[in-house]
Amino acid sequence: MTGRLSELTGLQIMKNKYLNDIVLIAVLLAVSLVLWFATVTGGNGKTGEKVRITVGDEIIGEYSLGTDASVDVRGMLTVVIENGQVCVTGETCRNHICAKHRPISKAGQTIVCLPNGVIVRITGNGELDAVI
């Protein structure tokens, strides 16, 4: 009898565990979605003004978003500015994630090429200093 009782309470604890899991997953999903929404609208949806390219902690240059340009970043990749949109091509990294990133145009949006340490970031009005 006591064995069955502990079995039952054991089952209860197990059930609670899964309930806790679901709560944890739901909270994490909610937090990440809210953060995502915050970063996407973080630049207040304003069109950016400049494109800043950095390699490591060194700023390679700032380019106007309004003028079409093609910037070679140390032979590692090319940043293409066209019609107020920025994308990355000709990258030398393995997974080509930076090139697959959709073009960016709003302040605060960023394309990162992690293997090369290159960050392409749009700056402009209403941009937060740090988007966390």
Partner: peptide, 9 residues
């Protein structure tokens, strides 16, 4: 730089 945290969400 904190720019990479853009990808965190």
């Amino acid at each position: 730089g904190s720019g990479i945290w853009y990808y965190f969400p």
